[in-house]
Design a protein around this nucleic acid. Sequence first.
DNA 1: GTGAAAGCGCTAACAC
DNA 2: GTGTTAGCGCTTTCAC
Lengths: 344, 344
Amino acid sequence: MAVASRVTIVDLAHQLGVSRQTISNVLNAPHRVKEETRIRVAKAIEESGYRPNSAARQLRNHISKNVGMRLHPAGNGISGTVLTGFLYGLTQAAHSHGYRVTLYCADSDEEEISRYEELLTEADLDGFVLTATHQDDQRAAWLAERGIPFVAFGRPWNSGTDVPQASHSWVDVDGRSGTRDATEHLLAAGHRRIGFIGWPNGSGVGGDRRAGWYDAMAAHAGTEGLESLTYFGEDTAAGGSSGAAYLLGQGATAFVCAGDGLALGASAYLRQSNQPALASSVIGFDNTPVAAAVGLSSVSQPVESAAAEVMRLLLGHLNSPTAEPQHVLLRPQLELRDLQPFNH
Amino acid sequence: MAVASRVTIVDLAHQLGVSRQTISNVLNAPHRVKEETRIRVAKAIEESGYRPNSAARQLRNHISKNVGMRLHPAGNGISGTVLTGFLYGLTQAAHSHGYRVTLYCADSDEEEISRYEELLTEADLDGFVLTATHQDDQRAAWLAERGIPFVAFGRPWNSGTDVPQASHSWVDVDGRSGTRDATEHLLAAGHRRIGFIGWPNGSGVGGDRRAGWYDAMAAHAGTEGLESLTYFGEDTAAGGSSGAAYLLGQGATAFVCAGDGLALGASAYLRQSNQPALASSVIGFDNTPVAAAVGLSSVSQPVESAAAEVMRLLLGHLNSPTAEPQHVLLRPQLELRDLQPFNH
DNA sequence: GTGAAAGCGCTAACAC
DNA sequence: GTGTTAGCGCTTTCAC
C-alpha cells in the first residue's frame, strides 16, 4: 500500500550532497566509509526515517530476509499450543535478526515441497524451518539436495540402526530428561509404584518420553517396593483415565504421562476414585493451558528458547552455506502445581 | 536463496519470439492480447514453470500481495487455539487469492502501530488483519486515517452509546446466538434452573455470551419452574468449579459457560458432586481441544469461515479503496458430546 | 495487437 | 574514500 511520502536512498543522497552509493555503504559496508561521513549519514538516516525498501534489495540480491514455516491445521490435539508458542518465538527471534517469517499451509510433505518451489522462485525465501518432522522425512532430503538452508524443530527419529545420523541441523526438547525429572520428583516424594501412561504407537516422541521414566526407575533399581508399570492408550482424557484405572488396580500411586491430555483424564479419574489424594501425583507433558487451568503439574517445553536456537542455527547456515550441521537438545522444565480443589 | 536456473520473463519472450511485454500482458491484461498468442504464451508459461518474481513486481507496483497479522503471546488461556485456527484459515484463504500472510509481534497497540509503519514502508504490505480488538482501539483509527485497508476479526465493542458505529469492516462470531442455542438445547432437554458461569469484568465478549443465555431464558419466561442464575468468576477451571458449586446450591441443573476453561472446572466439580449426572449438562464455549478431549459439549466458532470472510472483505478494500465498510456476523455451532466416563 | 523505452530502489563492480 | 555505471525482473505509457 502506498504510504505518504516515502523517503528513498536518492532523496537522502541529494539532501546530504553525497552519492546514493555512500548511503548504501553506510548501511551495508560501513568500513568503506570515512568515519565522519558515516556519522553524518547515519544521523540523517535516523532523522529522516529512511528505511531501505526490501523489494528493491531483494530484486538486487535475491535475498528476501524471509524464512518459511509451515502452519499445521488445528485439531492437532491439546498440544497444538506448543507449535503456536514456537511460532511466536520464531517470529520474535527472526525480527531481532532482521528477518521475517512467511507462513504457508500444506496437507502433505509432497505439497509442502511444491510450496518450497513456489516460495523459492517467487519470493526468494532464504531458508526454512521444519516442524513435525517424522520418520524418513522427504522434505529434509529435498532441501538438503538443493543446498537450501533449513533447521528442523524436532529430531529425525529415523528407524533402524543403519540409518545415518541426521546430516542436517536440528533443535529439539529432551523429552527423556523431562519425564526423568518428573519421575525423580515422584520418587523423592516417596512413591515406589510409579506408572507411565503413554501412547500406543511407537512414535519417536512417545518412546523418548517413556525412556525418561524408565531411566529414573532403573536408576533406583533395588529400592524396596519399587515397581515399574505401564499403560498405553489413545491420546484423550478417556485414554488417560483408563490408564489410571488400570494402573491403580496394579497398585500404582503416581503417574507420569506422555501428554497433558492423558494426564487430565488420569487426574480426573483419580479425583473420583476412592483415593482422590493420588490425583496430585499425576504429571503431564507440554504444560498446555489446560494444565495451568486445572492446576496439573506438567513438563514444560522451552519453546521460545527452542525458536531462538532454531533461528541461531539457521542464521549460521544463511551466512555461510558450508556451515556444519549442528544439534541442540534443550532441557524441559518440570512445572509443579497444586491441584485446584474441586470440592467447595 | 538462489535456486537453480530460474526462468525470467525475458527468457520466455526470447524463446517464443515475442516481446516480454506480451508475456506480461498475457498475465496481467489478457484482453489486450490476441487469443491465439495468448494461448501459445500461456502454454509456454505452464511448461517452462515460469513464475513472475514478486520482488520485481513489488518494486514496480508498490504492491506486495502480502497482508499483515499480529501474533499474540501464548498463555492467552485455553482459547488461544481460536486465534491459531483463525491464522491457519487466513493463510489458506490468502493463498487461494494469491496473497501471503506476514506475521509480526507486538506487546502493545503503540508497538503494533510502529510495526505498521515499518511494514508499510519497508515491505509494502497491502493491508492488515486486526485481532483481539478492544474498547477504543487506537490501531483501527491509525489505519483508517491513512486509508490503509484492514479488516478486524472481532467487533469494536465500544463503550457508551454516543460512540459511533464502527466505520471499518469487521467479521465476528455471534457469541450471543451460540449461548442462546446452548441454552435452548438445555431447555428442550427439560432443564428449568439454568445457570450462566461468566467472567467478572465487563468485556464485550463476555457480556455478549451472557446475553444469549439471557435471551433464551427470557424467551421462555412464564414456563413453570424457570429460574435464571448467574455466577461470575475468574477464567480458570477453579473459577468454573466454584461457579458450579454455587449454582448447584441454588438448585441449578444445567450450566452455560462463557468459555471452555470454566466449563471444564464446572463439569469436573459436578462429576464428584453427589449428582454426577449433571456434569453432562454443562456447555462450554470455543470448542477447544480440551473440550474434545474430555467429551464436553461446547459452542464452536467457525474460525476458518471467519478467516475466509475477513479475506473476502479485505480483498474488497484492496481492490477498491473506496469500498464501503461491511460487517459479517457468523453463527457458531453447538457441538454436542457425550462426556467420557471417568469411572471404569 | 504488439514492441520499445523508461524506471521502480537498491547494490556489486569498477573507475576516479 | 567516493561517485559512476549497470542491471536485478517487472509493468505502465506510449509509439507503431
